[in-house]
Amino acid sequence: MIQVEALTKLYGEFVAVNALSFSIQAGEVLGLVGPNGAGKTTTLRCLAGIIPPTRGRIHVVGHDLALSPIAAKQQLAFFPDEPRLFDYLTVWQHLNFVARIYQVANWEHLATPLLEELEIADKRDQLPGELSRGMKQKLAIACGLLHSPRVIYFDEPLTGLDPLGIRRMKDSILKRARAGAAIIISSHLLHLLEEVCSHFLILKGGQKVIHGTLGEIRLQFSEQSGAANLEEVFFRATIEPPIPPPIVSETPHT
């Protein structure tokens, strides 16, 4: 569903992403993790077609994003960390607009249950300025899901959601994956990723440190303890070896 070959993004001389390659199959959920500045958001923006990569190729559902952007983008949805909405459009008008952009026939029949599922059906005539942050995020999600994308990217999807919203979001991600969508989630919330992701890609300094299932990356980074969780694996993968502790004098303090 998603195939990335030698993706490289430069900003002047700064290498944001360096020769990144990986692929995701239908039904897989990939957790994209890494410290701040690792290149996660840049990678997602390249994969969504927002910024062109400097080098490399990206295929979405078999369509080359550079050569067939329309066919590729028709299949994907991108949810940035901050919901992007148009101030002047009501909830329902947002969906009407998106339906035309993605050419969704009978969109009303899809939009109504979608709004109900996201619990914003009663807000259909309200403007984004009248919605809470969580509601705005739900509206952005409704807009992104209206055209039934087969590839979904989430950038920090849980920011601003309440505990119930977090639970619903996790369920929704898993539901889409079970329906055959390929999903990438970029987040610093490692416990969330551990719950919903089938695969992990750890980036550092724009480069791939490791890619695989939790079991596979555990094997590589937790030789001494096979039961290491994602957080421990993350630290071992991204942090330089710790400085050995100073030698403590054996002479007891008096």
Binding site: F86, D87, Y88, L89, F97, A99, R100, I101, Q103, A105
Partner: peptide, 18 residues
Amino acid sequence: LASIGPRPVALLWKNLLG
């Protein structure tokens, strides 16, 4: 705004609303 038709019209529709 019908859901099927030239896509740029969606932007016209949105900006006229604005």
